[in-house]
Design a protein around this nucleic acid. Structure first.
Lengths: 192, 192
DNA sequence: CGATCGGTTGATATGAATCAACGTGCGTGG
DNA sequence: CCACGCACGTTGATTCATATCAACCGATCG
């Protein structure tokens, strides 16, 4: 379900309170790039506090809850309460660093490396939000989402998952990602 | 010449006053990803105002002048003068949007499209800083830099430049990029 | 004068895309 | 309740874009 569209004007700053979403660019042909995945607690984007229009689109991946705050009000709060600015800066730093790392993955990594990197990054973010037992992560993405995020086709993503499964590194089914061999996954996807 | 190194701690926020540089990640093998190019007037990164250590490395491409400001002082100024925060936010927005577009280029574009996109983006930034006559842009990058920025080999970059030259779209030599057919370059590299 | 750097070009290899077929589960309308 | 269509994933055959390896050239510089 589309939540926001590039160039759309909004007076609100949005926070994802529950569920999963993703931020993306749609090209005029069929191609699209998923820029990142949104998890509970994420602002759509730190910069949206100062931008009156979205420079990206957003879709929901599951049922979601979002909360909107008036931009003018958020800005006023920043002026009076410096703690808010610090929190915003922290979020912005995380976002920027994640973007830089993803850019590196897209420019330099092989298919296996890119997928491993994406999974590790998501696992870390999921684990920060809920307790993980036996390395089983809730994981609502379809292979097409992974493909659009790491710049591969879904066919090729399927092959790589087949390899990972065969090598007993991980398995993905029914919305659950189970990791059997974390060190190996990290060896593949944690290049820096 | 290396100017800054990943994980290095610094109490200063840096501004590039003259010359060209670039921000990058170096991988343990030979690979590196150039994250963006720095032109006069650019902060190394907007987030460095709130980060005490670099999460990236920086190298100079030409002779450069840089100016450092105490981070604590910059933060104090923000608190008293809201105009500085607005300016910082504007820079951060431009940086973020450029990163999102580059991520899209790396994930979705062909070699020709990526190079055309990079050149157009740089041309726009160069033109914002100096008057351009006859579509001749000062351009100190080597083909290896372009390769590392768009995730190709320098050999392949050379072939694509050969094609562009042959098709009378542009030519690059002696530090000058000359564009003969801007509409065609835009058709190739301006997909969204 | 030799060495190094940046760029070009050709031959070949390879990783990922494309095209196509098939299976399975699921929702929906008859 | 069944039949059909559709979304998602898998697998095989083939093609294509880009990488790799290698040779060579001209400019520059110690």
């Amino acid at each position: 379900m589309q939540i926001a569209t590039r160039n759309q004007v909004s007076e609100d700053v949005f926070l994802l309170c529950g569920g999963w979403g993703f931020r993306f660019f749609q090209l005029p042909d069929r191609r699209r790039q998923i820029l990142n995945f949104l998890l509970p607690g994420d602002l759509f984007s730190a910069t949206s506090v100062f931008e009156e229009r979205f420079h990206f689109s957003v879709k929901a991946l599951t049922e979601i809850q979002i909360s909107g705050m008036r931009r003018a009000e958020v800005q006023a709060r920043i002026a009076t309460n410096p703690g808010i600015l610090t929190a915003l800066a922290k979020f912005c730093i995380a976002e920027t660093e994640a973007a830089d790392r993803m850019q590196t993955a897209l420019g330099q990594y092989s298919a296996e490396e890119r997928i491993a990197y994406l999974l590790l990054h998501l696992m870390q973010r999921i684990a920060a939000r809920s307790v993980i037992r036996e390395q089983r992560f809730p994981f609502p993405l379809r292979q097409q989402h992974i493909a659009d995020a790491v710049g591969l086709t879904s066919v090729h993503v399927s092959r790589i998952f087949g390899l990972f499964r065969e090598r007993r590194i991980l398995a993905l089914s029914e919305g659950v990602l189970q990791v059997f061999n974390l060190p190996e996954l990290e060896r593949i996807g944690l290049l820096s």
